[in-house]
Design a protein around this nucleic acid. Structure first.
Lengths: 250, 250
DNA sequence: TTACATTGTGTCAGTTTGACTCAATAAAGA
DNA sequence: TCTTTATTGAGTCAAACTGACACAATGTAA
């Protein structure tokens, strides 16, 4: 698809959605990013809101377009509305690198307010698909991000903070893992999101006490140590807990 | 000020902010609402975002215009972006009741996406000021709300849910109280936000253990029972705790 | 003087947490 | 085959926290 086919007239002007799409692979939390055509920056997969569409639906559409996935955990977390969030100079450079017609030029030069969503997806199920504005679509380790456009770095950080807060209410990590997984993977996810090490025995005790995990067969990885048990989660109990929440302090 | 002086050209079209302003009075959590000119509905104090202004600044401006207050706890919590959130029929009725010129007519008839904020203010310090779109500005008990326009009922409910989640991370209630207050008031706020009764001795033990409260003189209310001690909060320790959060489960 | 509502303080069993052991075990190396 | 190594599963234990109480103290009204 050519960029110039983008029908800007059908979108709400000045408004966008940006998705921070998290995956987990090689014991690392990763984010899906797109390469800008200026070959200098990367950006979050984002898009615009159709005039007849809900904002949530727009975020789902963008997610589907980049990953081929439907019905994953997708959560709106913050609006980024600083008038200076996109540097005019940078936008001009980007626009130039894309060879656009005049209408599109105007479209990209306007001020955008963006709505941040984060998504939790199963890494192996994603087939990254670049969009018409980008050269590539790839995963990056959360602690080794490339140079990002505009305030996209801050958006990712905001997503992490939001996740950290949701973690105490909802058993989040499971959305990132395949249907069966060792507890260590889940622990690593929690450690990454919380930004601190957790005690293994204590973590296992707590997670298992939630009653949403089911023990499966052992996993022989070929590594020189005891093989861990795999677990899968009981969907019914999981969704019940998602609704109710866990860490009620008062 | 006349409505027809509203300079719509200086605002971002299709975007608004709505503030759920909470206060605490007579042992009740209250919300500040405006009376629509159709004399049938009430609405949240809201406004539009100037083309040169950040979204947060717009919310602060609206808050100041309705309450005369600056620098209070103001927290963005959700975007309401359903294309059908404002019924076309209702809008037409409202527009008719306001006697607008053609430009303004068009302005109000467009689809709006609104960004929800909630604010915590000290009831006694507020001087409610109606805006040019409304007939009155008044407080309502959170559990005795009048008929609200559009999805404003859902926005208020969303604010309550957001607060409930923040409560575990931040000692929120204090923003609603005067500089010194009895612990019972704070407990009532927590009970309202959480929607459940709390055990008084246990609540006091927990709140005091946070180390952000300072015991002051007794309060003689004239009621036929023991006079409670008043407490004020230690700002320094309070802000430290606000940053760090309290209820870390993992 | 008594009654009453509400407060300050305290108890206590049960649960959860944080910081630890330690034996079991899958594979690699000697 | 025996030993080594990394990691897992299971368990211990003191300290902290929680939920559910009890009870005396105290301003005012009857």
């Amino acid at each position: 698809m050519d960029i110039n086919d983008l029908d800007t007239a059908s979108f709400i002007p000045g408004l966008s959605v940006d998705n921070v799409i998290f995956g987990f692979h090689n014991n690392q939390l990763k984010v899906l990013l797109l390469a800008c055509k200026d070959q200098k920056h990367w950006m979050l997969p984002g898009g615009y809101v159709l005039k007849t569409e809900s904002v949530d639906a727009a975020a789902e559409r963008v997610l589907f377009d980049r990953t081929g996935l439907h019905k994953v955990y997708l959560q709106q977390f913050s609006v980024f509305g600083d008038p200076k969030r996109s540097s005019a100079q940078l936008v001009k450079g980007l626009v130039k690198s894309m060879d656009l017609d005049e209408t599109l030029n105007q479209w990209f030069l306007q001020r955008f307010i963006t709505i941040g969503y984060y998504a939790l997806v199963e890494f192996e199920k994603v087939k990254p698909i670049p969009d018409p504005l980008s050269l590539a679509c790839d995963w990056f380790d959360i602690d080794q991000l490339p140079r990002l456009i505009f305030d996209h770095q801050a958006i990712i950080e905001g997503a992490l903070i939001a996740m950290r807060q949701h973690l105490n209410f909802q058993p989040i990590g499971l959305n990132l893992l395949p249907s069966s997984f060792p507890l260590k993977s889940l622990q690593l996810i929690y450690e990454t999101i919380l930004g601190k090490k957790l005690d293994r025995p204590n973590f296992n005790r707590k997670i298992l006490s939630l009653g949403i995990l089911e023990k499966k067969e052992k996993q022989f990885t070929g590594a020189a140590h005891k093989a861990p048990f795999l677990y899968s989660f009981k969907k019914k109990e999981y969704y019940k807990l998602l609704k109710e929440g866990i860490g009620e302090t008062f």
